[in-house]
Simulated assay, not measured.
Amino acid sequence: MHDYVIVDVFTTVALEGNPLAVFLNAADIPAARMQLIAREMNLSETTFVLPAQGDGDRRVRIFTPVNELPFAGHPVLGTAAVLGESTARSGLRLETAAGTIPVDLQYPSDGTVSARMRQPVPVWEPYRLRDDLLDALGIKSSTLPVDAYRNGPRHVYVGVGSEAALSRVQPDLRALARHPDMAAICFAGSGTRWRMRMFSPAYGVAEDAATGSAAGPLAVHLARYGLVPFGQQIEILQGVEMGRPSHMSARADATGQRPHTVEVSGSAVITAYGTLLV
């Protein structure tokens, strides 16, 4: 038997945000069984907490229903919130396959946990299947160049002209599934306020309510093309079309035009405790 926690991430309201299953004390679970458990939970991600192997406080493995990810945002932030809620620590260092992620924690009086994580700085390149991707999304053009960013998962950014147009996006998931190892990130907005949607049949997720690993690279993407300055915090709303509004803050700092620090923050609330019997 293994205990787990369900935590709603990037929200202060239970049953909103992006749900995550966190399996504590998972050192005796083989990787193949972790994948089966993640498929059983059928959330966008499930995490498994293990003893640290290096410079962190805990090691975390992250699984979608179909594959393991080296890093993902809402799983890291949500796992830190669950661990912090039981210890009241002001910070944790979580080891992932993409490196050790520092997470600062605060505990407001409303029962939520607030967290800020420093993400891996992404690398990027133009997405070579741009036209096929636009066709799969049903979008005629992008407001910015279509670039792919990798900070563990690979996110490909497509700008949409308005929030109303963003809400109307209905991708052809069969066509989108032919784009391997990527999530399509559609975004719209201006200034410091942005909306985002994520589609990734390649990662077993038709649409995601909150994609923390994509929030940081969005800040980089906007700054690279002059829509916000480096060092400016932006607010990102995702999950509206799914009925699970999620609120993220992101900031990318740079020397010149080269980012060196990417931070994403948000809140989380524990909603359920359970036990897996097998």
Rank of each mutant, 00 (worst) to 15 (best):
V169W: 03
S109W: 04
T261G: 11
D132V: 00
A88T: 12
P171C: 05
A206K: 10
E263N: 12
L92S: 04
R251F: 03
A81T: 05
I236L: 10
G54E: 11
G138R: 15
D147L: 11
I62A: 02
Y127H: 14
P75V: 02
F63E: 01
D147W: 11
S114I: 00
F10N: 00
A14W: 05
D57F: 04
N18G: 09
Q119D: 02
M248N: 03
F48W: 04
T112E: 03
Y225H: 15
D208Q: 09
P145Q: 12
P217E: 03
W194Y: 12
G212K: 00
L137P: 05
S249H: 13
V9W: 01
G91A: 13
W194F: 10
M182A: 12
L24F: 06
H260C: 09
D3C: 05
T47D: 02
S86F: 06
H74Y: 07
T47F: 02
M41C: 13
A183G: 06
S86Q: 14
Q35H: 12
R178F: 03
P259R: 09
T143Y: 00
E263V: 14
L94S: 01
L144Y: 00
P122N: 10
A31E: 13
T143V: 10
I185V: 14
L50S: 05
S86V: 12
M242Q: 15
Q119I: 00
R59M: 12
D57G: 02
S167F: 06
V9C: 03
A27G: 09
P259S: 11
A268G: 05
D3F: 08
G54Q: 14
L20M: 07
F63R: 03
C186R: 07
G17R: 05
Y157A: 12
P145I: 07
V121M: 08
G204K: 02
A136M: 10
I29M: 11
T46L: 14
R178T: 11
N42E: 13
T112M: 05
E263F: 07
G152R: 02
L144S: 09
T255H: 14
G212C: 02
V22K: 03
S90T: 11
L166D: 07
A136L: 08
Y127K: 10
V113T: 14
V22I: 06
H260D: 12
M34T: 03
M117C: 02
R128T: 14
V113L: 08
V160W: 00
L94H: 02
G73M: 09
